[in-house]
């Protein structure tokens, strides 16, 4: 596939820490509007891959392109976020001493410079948008609660809400269902499917029920490179995937 038509394009990416190869010749392509699930055992390089895409870690070699033209290896976290890549962390990280409302306001798409924020006055449109998001993530009655006081699941949802507030082109979602009840997990899957209608999404998850509920193309990583790719049934039938990840 030519690079030009892709949203995210990784080719031959490698990175090592003190001799340990966390990512080894990884190549992957996400097209516009696609939702992709990533599975793989611990240490397969899932989080490191996200670190590379979002500019936290520089690859030792290989190409990473966004929208077919932007070389992500030359950008830092802030500019990658401004390009339109949003990220939700494995461990939910929200701003604990801010209220739910403030968390969303900070995430809301708006000029990011210090002087812009210094003289920023919240507009009616922005308020409506935050209200909409609050309804979507079901935290409407918690809007003035400090984020620190939310439950684990609520923090996960708040973080997804912040991700949406950024209005990114591509969402990287790391284990959104971790620590959730079964019901919450299903709701989260539905929410992501909703989001995927208008955005490209990459989801990392261990929960197979969750992956099945998403019903999208699956990539299995192991030891830093792609082991298998295809539908969930195709991937879970793969001998090597069963060997290293699913177990017999």
């Amino acid at each position: 596939m030519s690079r030009q038509n892709t949203l995210l394009y990784l080719d031959g990416v490698s990175v090592s820490f003190d001799g340990f190869r966390a990512i080894n010749d990884l190549s992957m392509v996400i097209t516009h509007g696609e939702m992709r699930a990533i599975i793989g055992p611990n240490g397969a390089g899932k989080t490191t891959m996200m670190d590379i895409i979002t500019g936290k870690t520089r690859p030792d070699s290989g190409e990473v392109f966004f929208n077919g033209v932007v070389d992500l290896t030359a950008e830092d976290e802030a500019s990658i976020a401004e390009l339109g890549i949003g990220r939700k962390f494995q461990k939910p990280t929200v701003f604990e001493s801010h209220t739910v409302w403030d968390n969303l306001e900070l995430a809301l798409k708006a000029p990011r410079g210090p002087f812009a924020t210094l003289f920023h006055m919240i507009s009616g449109a922005e308020k409506t948008r935050i209200e909409d998001l609050l309804t979507l993530i079901r935290l409407g009655d918690k809007r003035d609660e400090l984020a620190a006081n939310l439950s684990h699941g609520q923090k996960q949802w708040l973080e997804i809400g912040m991700l949406l507030a950024q209005d990114p082109k591509l969402l990287l979602v790391d284990e959104p269902a971790a620590g959730m009840t079964d019901a919450e997990t299903m709701e989260t899957a539905e929410l992501l499917k909703d989001i995927a209608k208008t955005h490209s999404v990459v989801v990392v998850e261990h929960d197979m029920t969750f992956i099945r509920a998403l019903g999208v193309k699956v990539t299995c990583l192991a030891e830093g490179s792609v082991l298998a790719e295809g539908s969930l049934d195709h991937v879970s039938a793969d001998e090597r995937v069963i060997e290293v990840y699913l177990g017999r």
């Binding site: 936290k56 976290e77 500019s79 401004e82 949003g86 990280t93 701003f95 900070l106 950024q166």
Partner: peptide, 12 residues
């Protein structure tokens, strides 16, 4: 509170 999170929101 969370410097790196702020970066990922696009703030320099």
């Amino acid at each position: 509170d969370a410097e790196s999170r702020t970066r990922f929101l696009g703030y320099r």
